[in-house]
């Protein structure tokens, strides 16, 4: 662990550039944790946010960095480290080009390269393409893509090395196309989710690789469920579903860890996974019945 909180510049003039590097760097979480050690109010006591702490200067910060903030402002951020994480999220989500020009460490740069290599490799080895779908939203602006397509087609002229990926199999379980977008009553929706979860039992993988793939697919389905709006459900039902879904997801992760660790044989891991999914199916079914 690096200890950035013990390396805060003594010279106030260096504080802004130092903090900017922290905000775009890999040590911000460590910095915030360390700063929170002896501070009771790592978060603002009134639940206020950056908008309150920095006020109307936030827009300038997002566009042009911390130079517009006083030393007291900067020290104020360091005194409430929860705000540092919030500021990082705002910078990454909304910040201007200035922030992409802030230097990163060699350690960070190396990590970025490793991630890029790994992602490229995974896409090359298993280039499962995203499901073919109508782009969501902004359909009126589709014509604007045409010049872009033309530009990108130029790339294809030199692209002899790339092989097209196979068309992916349709998703199953919670990833079944159209499952989460149906406008149906809540009880029917939960029943359909229950049926979708039950698709787990359609296959009985008997090798470590096939079981791992099946578990990963189910886990990804949970992620899909977590990210969906669930407009069909009332707030309390949605909260219930998300809570359960996180537990299912964690359970699948644990099954994956067991599989990778070789702690149990494949049949035992599958039995445990079956048990987990069965509970999920039952829970969804019972909730649906309670609403019906």
């Amino acid at each position: 662990m690096n200890l950035p909180a013990l390396e805060i510049p003594e010279d106030d003039a260096l504080l802004a550039p130092w903090l900017e590097r922290q905000l775009v760097g890999m040590d911000l979480g460590d910095l915030a944790t360390q700063l929170a050690l002896w501070q009771e109010d790592a978060a603002p006591p009134d639940g206020s946010s950056l908008d309150v702490a920095i006020g109307d200067r936030l827009a300038t910060v997002l566009e042009a960095g911390l130079c517009g903030l006083s030393v007291d402002d900067l020290r104020g951020l360091l005194a409430r480290p929860g705000l540092l994480l919030e500021l990082q999220a705002r910078i990454f989500g909304e910040g201007g080009d200035y922030w992409r020009g802030v230097a990163i460490s060699s350690e960070h740069r190396a990590a970025v390269q490793r991630v890029e290599s790994a992602v490229s490799e995974r896409l090359r080895e298993r280039p499962t393409l995203p499901p073919v779908a109508e782009p969501v939203g902004n359909l009126r602006a589709r014509w604007r893509v045409l010049p872009a397509i033309a530009a990108v087609l130029l790339l294809a002229l030199g692209a002899w090395a790339l092989r097209p990926g196979p068309v992916p199999a349709p998703g199953w379980g919670f990833d079944r196309p159209g499952l989460l977008t149906q406008q149906i009553p809540a009880d029917q929706y939960l029943t359909m989710l229950s049926q979708a979860a039950n698709q787990w039992f359609n296959k009985k993988p008997d090798s470590a690789d096939s079981l791992r793939a099946r578990l990963i697919q189910f886990r990804d389905g949970c992620d899909t469920l977590l990210a969906a709006p669930h407009a069909q459900l009332a707030a309390a039902d949605k909260e219930w579903l998300l809570k359960r879904c996180r537990a299912w997801r964690d359970g699948i992760e644990i099954r994956l860890a067991e599989l990778d660790a070789g702690e149990f044989d494949i049949a035992e891991v599958r039995r445990r996974a079956d048990e987990l999914v069965e509970k999920a199916v039952d829970a969804l079914h019972q909730r649906a019945e309670s609403l019906g």
Partner: peptide
């Protein structure tokens, strides 16, 4: 051709944001 476009566009998105993605991924420790 479409799959090539998709990969090229996705590579560009990674090029734009990978530094920030890695930093954000480290927010609870490296």
């Amino acid at each position: 051709k479409a799959s090539f476009q998709a990969q090229a566009a996705f590579a560009k998105l990674r090029e734009r944001y990978n530094e920030q993605v890695v930093a954000s991924a480290a927010q609870f420790g490296k």
